[in-house]
Design a protein around this nucleic acid. Structure first.
Lengths: 250, 250
DNA sequence: AAGTGGTCTAGACCACCAT
DNA sequence: TGGTGGTCTAGACCACTTG
């Protein structure tokens, strides 16, 4: 099933076996062969199936675990991880308190529309200038009060057939991309700034009067899929009067 | 040299061999046995020295590489990585442009003073209330213009004997901790907010007049050493009119 | 050619989980 | 008791770097 690195003479450029296995499993996961929390075959079964040793399968699985696509439970098996939430590993906490468990956030879908990519957007997503995009807007609430506003931009041609009703359930954009297009989000780059909000956005976040003078945290996110495709450009505004956005770094 | 997991019967709780090796190497690195960019002994030499197999050494080394303490070059060897800069993996870019190579920042030492830990600080650093602290202030410049201001808080008892002149060279706090105390910084948690600057800090960042009304990005960082000790609480203010702070996430 | 990291195998045993 | 992940070994060979 899998081509060995060592049986091929003078091959121009071969990936290591475990990388081939990783990509093979990635494809099977993306195609929905196993759903969230489903168990994969055991390391030994996969090894037999692909005619490689258990150690090689294990190395491939370990990388997928590190990428957040799988998780393991000793004595039980290896399972497909649930999709990343729209907040990834970030969460909202009280400023200065690092071990606080945050409130659950609810997601309210606002609208979807079509527009053209800005220049920065097109460059970052590796699209042509003014490429057609979907714009999804959603509002996040903690304990009922607005805490963040998202403007999510997705390449319209890549995600052709997108429908507003897919977002009404409030599960978030990443869950929808997984369900409808088999795209798994795994990585992102984020830029942070402090800005004053444009009037119309401020209204959506429930700001008025003196609160309009309040600065908000601006997050700009470029998102990659499990196969390295650039899939999303997201502008998020977070109210940061009472909340701070936590990121774990290294 | 290293105790095997498997030769000990009824041991209450043994770490895997590779974890013991990792900690053993960690200690030798911290003690300065090898300096930055020095080569470690080869995997086979380390394996012989510790009477384990090459694969086991390799696993330990791989984790240290993942932690950022070592780096490898195929065909050459395994080397001690340079200490983390005070910016870690973060960097400043133009807003909306993700593949820009940033300017080098210069670090200007401002002052060191003694004070007592705030409540939040003491909790986060696992110190007693009002524990004595050092406060180091430094200013970062890009192309000569101020871009960020740091207030670094370090436990005074842990870092007894700290001297102002250690910081004058502008190499940063993490390089100084490594050089003077053998402490290697490896991990952090960061909270981001948007705030208006207090007047005095604003002056240090070169803000005046209308610019005082400008919001700045506030980063609050809790830092861990390579042995899991909590070593630093840092408040950083970044001007974010022309620059955004980039973080790679997952 | 010699030395180093990088990959792979076959086989062994341990620790945990379900039954 | 049997299946699963987790660790470890000894030996082999590949790919890259240096002399």
């Amino acid at each position: 099933m899998i081509q060995s690195h060592y049986m091929i003479a003078n091959a121009p450029r071969r990936q290591p076996l475990y990388v081939q296995i990783k990509q093979f499993l990635l494809r099977r996961i993306a195609e929905g062969e196993w759903l969230e929390h489903d168990a994969l075959p055991s390391e030994w079964d996969l090894a037999d199936e692909m005619s490689v040793s258990q150690g090689t399968v294990r190395k491939a699985l370990s990388e997928l675990v590190a990428d957040g696509l799988l998780y393991r439970q000793q004595g039980k098996g290896t399972f497909v991880a649930p999709v990343l939430s729209d907040w990834g590993n970030a969460l909202l906490q009280s400023p200065g308190v690092f071990d606080e468990v945050p409130d659950r956030l609810s997601c309210e879908f606002l609208a979807i529309s079509r527009m053209n990519a800005s220049d920065d957007m097109a460059v970052a997503l590796q699209l042509r200038r003014h490429a057609p995009m979907f714009r999804v807007r959603q509002l996040w609430r903690g304990q009922g009060r607005p805490v963040a506003l998202d403007e999510v931009y997705l390449p319209a041609e890549r995600f052709d057939g997108m429908e507003a009703r897919w977002f009404r359930s409030g599960v978030g954009v990443y869950a929808t991309l997984q369900q409808r297009f088999g795209v798994r989000v795994v990585e992102s780059r984020e830029q942070y700034r402090a800005v004053m909000l444009p009037r119309e956005d401020a209204n959506l976040l429930g700001l008025s009067g003196a609160a309009l003078e309040e600065p908000v945290l601006s997050m700009l996110r470029l998102t990659f899929s499990s196969v390295g495709e650039r899939v999303e450009w997201r502008q998020r505004y977070c109210l940061s009067r009472d909340l701070a956005l936590l990121q774990k770094g290294c």
